[in-house]
Simulated scan of single mutants.
Amino acid sequence: FISKLVIIYVLFLFLKKKKITLSSIMLKKVHIKYILLGILMGSIAHMLTVFFGRTQYYLLTGEWLTAEKIVGTLMESSKNISFYSIIMIGFSVAISEEILFRGILLKQYQRVNIKSAIILSALIFSIYHMTVGNLVFAFVMGISLALLTIYTGSIVPAIFFHFLVNEIMRIIMHFPEKVTETYFKVMVSPITSISGMILFLSILTFLFIK
C-alpha cells in the first residue's frame, strides 16, 4: 500500500512539473452510468479470470480446479488480510496504474493515432504484468480498459473496473465459507463462463464501434 502511494505521489510530482492538469489525463468526474459500466465490466472480467485460471491449471496438471480447491487456496492466502486493507491496496493499485497506463501513456499516444495508442498502452500494460500465463489476459484487459477510458472520457470507470478484477476474489473471502463456496460453484459453471465471455465481447464490440 505504501509503495503504491509513493508511485502515486511521484506521478503527481511529474504531472505538476510538466504542468499537466488532472482533467488532461482524464482523471475527472463522469456520469454515474459510466461508473456502473466500469463496475459491470470489472465484474464480468472477474468471471473470465476464474475461467482463465482454471484453464491454465488444467493445461499444467491435466485436471480442473473445483470450487472447493479454489476456496481452500484463497482462504489460506487471504486469512491474514483484513477487508479494509484489501480496499485500500486495491484502489491504490488501480488508481496508480490507471493514471500511468491510461491517463498518461494512452493519452499521449492518442494524439498520434488512437488505434495505435490502444494497442501500445495495452502491450506495455501486459509486459508490466508479465508472467507466462498472464501476458495474453493482461493484454486483453489493457485493450478493454483503454476502450472504456476513451468512450467515457475519464479513467474513473477504469479505476473501478481495475479494482474489481484485482480484488473481488479476496473480498469474497470475507464472507462465510459456505457462501464463498456457493459463489465459486456458480463461477466455475460452463454456462457462467460462456455467458460472461459473450457479454464481455459484446460490450467490447460496442465500445470499439462507438
Rank of each mutant, 00 (worst) to 15 (best):
M141E: 08
N134H: 10
I127F: 14
S126K: 03
L147G: 07
I143S: 04
I127M: 11
A122E: 07
S126E: 11
F139S: 08
A122V: 01
F137L: 14
H129I: 07
I143E: 07
I143C: 03
I143M: 03
N134Q: 15
F125Y: 14
G133T: 11
I119K: 00
I118Q: 08
L120S: 02
H129R: 08
G142R: 00
S121G: 09
S121K: 02
V140T: 05
I143D: 04
L135P: 08
F125S: 11
V132T: 14
N134F: 13
T149L: 01
T131S: 14
I119T: 05
L123T: 15
M141Q: 08
L147S: 08
I118S: 07
S121I: 07
S126H: 05
G133K: 01
L145V: 00
S121A: 13
L148A: 08
I143V: 15
G142P: 06
V132Q: 11
T149Q: 05
G133F: 14
S126T: 08
N134S: 15
T131V: 02
F139C: 06
A122S: 14
H129T: 09
I118K: 07
G142Y: 02
S144L: 03
V132G: 14
V132L: 15
A146Y: 03
L145Y: 06
Y128D: 09
S144N: 05
F139A: 04
L123W: 03
T131L: 10
I118F: 10
S121T: 09
L123C: 09
F137K: 07
A146N: 06
T131Y: 11
V140P: 00
I119S: 04
M130H: 12
V136C: 05
Y128R: 04
A138F: 02
T149K: 01
I127P: 10
L135D: 08
A138K: 02
L123N: 03
I118R: 04
V132H: 06
I118G: 04
S144F: 03
